[in-house]
Design a protein around this nucleic acid. Structure first.
Lengths: 212, 212, 212, 212
DNA sequence: CATGAATGAGTCTTCATTCAT
DNA sequence: GATGAATGAAGACTCATTCAT
């Protein structure tokens, strides 16, 4: 018999990276469900299938847990966005449409939307996180959008060329959707696909041969 | 006659409504600054100039403080919005422009923006509040907007007539601005006036005699 | 019926000073028994007949409890010592004898000896306490002793006049006794009265008309 | 032959006695610096250059570490003292002077003074230690002193022959010095050489041909 | 033998809520 | 009504000890 019977003994001595990831996953789901203040370290440990003290072997304190989580969230999304906007070949409208599709499938359609709400909620009290996001996510993301919008304006595709100076507006419906889903979805469904579609058609002039 | 002067008496036994309002004002400023969890009842009492126990004569618990505050926040804004959209005489674009002006002066420019952020943050954990807002603020507000946008569409003033079905989009830049101000303003200033202006010009076709 | 039925209701709302004193008394006995680290705030509270949280209404933290205790211990003893050495009329030998009698009845014979041991033990880790004692107790006490010994030397009563420059030696047997009582008394009794008597006769030449 | 060099191996699998000594040395320095409660097993391990668990291969628990340390401290000093007092040839005054010189160079002048303070502080809570010291150090040490003082008394060298019945007094200035160094040295220097000299001259009559 | 990840009992401290005055 | 002392449940974090590798 192999001494690494993988099944049962999995409880002890995991690979540190794996363990760390499990803790973060547990923290993620609990922070999402209950918010930062209402989540107890012990609950995170329990959900990760470990003891309270073990959490502290991987993170110095509760705050670090949140900070790590926030930082880790950023890169995957950014990478996708980056890949998208990189190709000059793609039409701006298609790029923005792709961004909204990405937002729908990767944020609104998953638990990640809770994390975004969490960042909105708690970010203010974690300046490290806010600054990190501004520097690494927003600056980069807005920069890419600015370029795309600039190109669209030059090609005469934008309804309002001034949009290129306000790339934040592109994010606005995404944030709105996250908030709506969090607070009001139980009372009234929001059709985000239609929302993004409508917004897109408002931003861009119809392409050649497209029906108005 | 005893040694209690009028001035001294003025501190005690105030009109209950007035007292209640003072407590709410104190709670408002503290919740805004620190969030719900980090605000202590005692701090609220101190800021209101009363004793801890007195708070409980007016509100059953901390949660009630938050829900009352949330409920109280709604009406003034709603009233103004209502007043605005009521007049059929005003052009839709002017009404929406007025709404943004209102948002700037009454929300973004004041401490109320913190309260809106607070509603976004904590609302999920206070279903009473979320439902209240959906029923009394959003339903009403979105209804009004739908009418205004419908009228604009009929008058051919909208870039995209489908907007009338997505009045939530009107709120999106306001939410975005609130979030930006909370998290990123220290790192990068957001010119909300320009943002709203740009957005407005994107939604509406130029009026007669206006330069595109 | 008097509403201050003093007997049963004594549990609540005591005079703050009294309450503070009770907490200090409880802390004193527990620190004495178990040392600083091994004493739990909750035990102090229980012994004082109050709830854990109440301790924190009177002292900011565990350290403050120790510090206050240490500071409070000093003055009574100092006052007595001061009264003693003040009178120039008394013979130096009588004064020192009185000091040892005081040490026996007020320190070695009471729980205060535990506190002295505690100061010896923990003082190093509480620089505030050590400095306080140096400034307010030792400096003063040694100063007084120096004067007394100086006078004795001038009157030719000291076996070794150089003692006036080393007043710390006077304290040495007291410290030794405190330590002995703490550690070894169960195994071997120390007759402190005889100890002090022997030491005194070693320091001073026999008075006129005294038997050797 | 594998990649393990001699140097690398030297870190592992040392002679058990040597390993034990290293752990005790590490424990000694840390207990001295911070006291018993504030010293963590992990710190001891780190300072000894081994892993936490390894400590438990040599000592059953933290307490055993302290008691072993305490016991080990005793013998060297005792041996020296024993060697000193053994020779009947040496004058009593010279022996006691030698004892103080020993105390200065081997205790007060080294880290061992911290250990003595530690014994004073924690001894009470480790009855095993207290009893061990009483039986193996104090009884023996006081016995030797009693003999020496007895001899001095018989030879008419003592100011007060009764001193022979109170050999504890000989230790008093040593303890006083240890305590002073621990607590008050930063605020006021104590000249222990002078202190012991003064004390010695107080106990003993001047030797023949010596100035009083 | 040696390691250090894992455990969980233990402790300080906070704070919403109560209630005697 | 108003007060603020008192309560005690709750939660972050520590660290001696164990034990799988």
């Amino acid at each position: 018999m192999d001494s690494h019977t993988m099944a049962e003994k999995a409880r002890k001595r995991r690979d540190p990276e794996e363990r760390r990831a499990e803790i973060l996953a547990a923290a993620f789901s609990l922070f999402s469900e209950r918010g930062f203040a209402a989540t107890r370290i012990e609950d995170i440990a329990t959900r990760a299938g470990i003891a309270k003290g073990t959490v502290y072997l991987h993170f110095p304190d509760k705050e670090a847990l949140f900070t790590s989580l926030a930082a880790g969230m950023a890169s995957p999304i950014l990478a996708r966005m980056s890949a998208m906007t990189a190709s000059d070949a793609m039409a701006p409208k298609t790029i923005i449409a792709g961004l909204y599709a990405l937002a729908e499938s990767e944020i609104l359609g998953t638990d990640r939307r809770h994390m975004l709400r969490l960042l909105i909620s708690e970010g203010q009290f974690f300046p490290v996180v806010a600054e990190f996001y501004h520097r690494n996510v927003l600056s980069v993301g807005l920069g890419m959008l600015r370029q795309v919008l600039q190109r669209a304006a030059e090609r005469g595709e934008l309804r309002n060329p001034a949009l290129a100076a306000m790339p934040q507006l592109i994010f606005a419906p995404i944030l709105m959707s996250v908030i709506w889903k969090s607070l009001f979805e139980p009372y009234e469904h929001l059709d985000t696909k239609a929302l993004f579609e409508t917004f897109l058609e408002t931003l861009f002039l119809p392409s050649e041969g497209e029906d108005s």
